[in-house]
Design a binder for these strands. Structure first.
Lengths: 226, 226
DNA sequence: CTTTTTGAACTGACTGGTCAGTGCAAAAAT
DNA sequence: ATTTTTGCACTGACCAGTCAGTTCAAAAAG
């Protein structure tokens, strides 16, 4: 119904946008733009409703595109989701790595690096809350088609944190008794849950504010009268 | 296919089992047992696949019960899920509260209370990993039928942590500058993610081991040579 | 006798995926 | 300069299958 209504409803949405590398094969701009719109639509819908509860029709409608276009651009609903996942976590990993390297270049300590990564995490979640939400919801599921993709991509991100932790231990800055793997997971969890709570229940607070609170916790400046 | 195979496959499963309070209305034991089986079946299936991807037929089959029985005991799939949620988080909240009170009764500090709650959290996740998984996956979603239930129940649990934090501040044990709400969320996240990682990737480790690692992090004994 | 469960058939709405066909801008032909 | 062709990107009606929820007579349990 209303056959002509959807054709020109192209609003330049930015929420959840994750501009993809135009480096790969100068493929037509038109197609890339369509894929982008589909990513944006899928990210928010799946974050809200979950993968199974989100229909391809919904995604197409939200993107202002016909259903067939979805299948012209992606082999299946799962593939669309998988590519979305890979792309998103790739951005996060790059951001974490950059934060660690920048800190090192500036001669900061490993705690400084950790702190910079906490901030990078917050910035990411601030920019892509829907993606983060969706990612958390899927991460610990088992027996799903994209599980391996999820694992690989998760490991890449956590490995950055683990790396800094290990370097800190080697440099004598951290206790040799810390459990690198578990501590990395705990730190990620700390930022993740705190940030999701921030976005869900206190969205008016500033990033700096939240960062300061987490910094304090990270550096053990909780006990004592401060 | 294989019509009779599933009927008598009643293994006394404990994973995800959450014996409900028999205190409320001495309702017939039989019915309660059936509901229990349905909870257990639903918890694992939904944890693996998500709510929408899990069919009522699957739940009934896994519980070793006819489909009609599901609808005799619960008004709908959503209601079954909602009651499951309420029940599970209720157990967690009670456990956290008990840990805090026990520590206080033993004359422990607020850090001790926090530590006891971390352990209680780990014990819970150790016992009900599937429930935890499912809960995390749903917690930050929006626009779902059971959202309000989820929120209420979440707040009850987090409030216990916040309470201890606040008492610690009042007693001068914690800095007055800590952000109670955010710190509580961060602590919960720390335990949650660390525990899920433990269960997913290093299930052979002992609870004490994991608890020790988190304790160290909690008390800021990470920096320095330990 | 009452409560609870069974089990199988049925409905109606919805969903992932398909496919023949359209629109259009650039290239080729004239 | 004008016409014709090409093929990419997109369209949307359609199909075959799936699922939540219903119904109900009969059996089991207590």
């Amino acid at each position: 119904m209303i056959p002509n209504a959807s054709l020109h409803a192209r609003v330049p949405v930015t929420i959840g946008a994750m501009e993809s590398s135009s480096a790969t094969s100068g493929g037509s701009t038109r197609r890339e733009a369509t894929r982008q719109k589909l990513y944006e639509a899928a990210v928010t819908l799946i974050a809200e409703q979950g993968f199974s509860a989100t229909t391809v029709d919904e995604i197409a409608e939200r993107a202002g595109v016909a259903k067939g276009t979805v299948y012209y651009n992606f082999a299946s609903k799962s593939v669309l989701f998988e590519e979305l996942l890979r792309h998103g976590v790739g951005l996060l990993t790059a951001s974490l790595r950059e934060a660690a390297e920048r800190t090192a270049a500036e001669g900061g300590s490993k705690v400084d690096a950790l702190d910079a990564m906490v901030r990078a995490g917050l910035v990411f979640i601030d920019r892509y809350p829907a993606f983060t939400q969706l990612y958390v919801a899927e991460l610990w599921r088992t027996n799903r088609a994209w599980q391996s993709t999820l694992m690989v991509v998760r490991q890449e991100a956590v490995a950055v944190v683990e790396g800094v932790l290990r370097e800190g231990v080697a440099a004598g800055e951290f206790s040799e008794e810390i459990d690198v793997q578990l501590t990395a997971a705990a730190l990620v969890g700390m930022v993740l849950v705190a940030a999701l709570d921030w976005k869900s229940f206190q969205p008016e607070r500033s990033l700096d504010d939240v960062h300061a609170a987490l910094s304090r916790l990270l550096q053990g400046r909780v006990s004592g009268k401060g």
